[in-house]
């Protein structure tokens, strides 16, 4: 096969990026995988083969189990809230044409901020002795927010108590504040994309506004919801900066997540192999969501 000059140029255009991606994404993942089965748990590298020792250690480790539990509850609450709030706001904005650009901008602006800024501010707003508790105390409630060590509906599972850690709710609030704009923008774009004639037709058929949303519009928004779920899931499964800036791993590890554990155990405790194992597990968790989605959406376009 002979390449034309154009094809050669096209290859040259792609080559640097492909090389970089091949080495720095796939090669490095392989390298991390290798570290994760090594004995490198001290300052100096020791790449001798350790088998699955590091993984087995993690599965029996209290902190890791707690981190996985927190991630599960964080992810579910976070995605649900972002979708419900984003969709409701999008529909409200869809119905109130006047002034909705202003509202949209207000709901969207936290997206432009860093998780670190969000963490710093919300750490204070949800501080147990000030912030929102100043208002709540009028009603006689004083939640302990991210310092609460209770596990709701907990039962013993492995070495941890499995259930909803109350403290994680505080982090969810901050994350939802920041990311709702994302789903809102997606839904607003989706709603504008829906043909007005379609609604008109439904109205003529005697459907109420509520029915139009439920029967016509919502089903059309399903692909957007899918995208929102995937994107939010990959953010929440690897969340690090928000937790690190806002709460740290928390008392009894109620707000710890694998991202923070990996960072601390690797770069502070020098357990490189354990850290690599945590990273590999995080990668697998994300891949479970992402790979099918990527394959599916590629198939859709080609």
């Amino acid at each position: 096969m002979k390449l034309t000059k154009d094809q050669l140029m096209a290859a040259l255009f792609l080559a640097p990026s492909l090389l970089l991606i091949a080495i720095f994404v796939y090669g490095f993942i392989g390298w991390t995988g290798w570290v994760s089965v090594s004995n490198w748990n001290s300052l100096m590298p020791d790449m001798s083969f350790a088998g699955l020792k590091n993984y087995l250690y993690l599965f029996g480790d209290y902190r890791f189990q707690a981190g996985i539990r927190n991630t599960i509850f964080f992810t579910v609450l976070f995605i649900l809230s972002v979708i419900v709030l984003g969709l409701s706001l999008a529909i409200l904005l869809d119905q109130t044409k006047k002034g909705n650009a202003v509202f949209r901008n207000i709901f969207l602006f936290p997206m432009a901020l860093s998780f670190v800024v969000t963490g710093v501010v919300w750490q204070w707003l949800l501080h147990p002795s000030t912030g929102f508790n100043r208002f709540l105390q009028v009603f006689g409630i004083q939640p302990k927010w991210y310092t609460d060590t209770n596990i709701l509906a907990g039962f013993q599972w492995g070495s941890i108590e499995f259930g909803l850690p109350v403290a994680i709710i505080a982090v969810v609030i901050a994350a939802v504040w920041q990311m709702t704009g994302f789903s809102l923008a997606m839904y607003v774009a989706g709603l504008t994309g829906i043909d007005e004639e379609l609604r008109e037709a439904a109205r003529i058929d005697g459907a109420t506004e509520f029915q139009i949303y439920r029967k016509v519009i919502l089903p059309m928004l399903t692909p957007i919801t899918m995208s929102v779920i995937i994107i939010m899931a990959h953010i929440s499964l690897k969340i690090f900066d928000l937790i690190y800036a806002m709460t740290g791993s928390g008392a009894n590890f109620v707000t710890d997540v694998p991202g923070v554990y990996m960072f601390e155990t690797t770069f502070r405790g020098n357990y490189y192999a354990n850290g690599a194992a945590i990273a590999m597990i995080m990668l697998i968790l994300v891949a479970v969501f992402i790979v099918p989605y990527l394959i599916h959406s590629r198939r859709g376009t080609s």
Binding site: N41, S42, L43, Y62, R63, S249, A251, N252, F253, E264, T265, R268, G269, N270, Y271
Partner: peptide, 15 residues
Amino acid sequence: EGFLTKVNQEVNIFV
């Protein structure tokens, strides 16, 4: 440092 990391972890749980 490695041992200390683990003790800190256990102390955090114990508290």
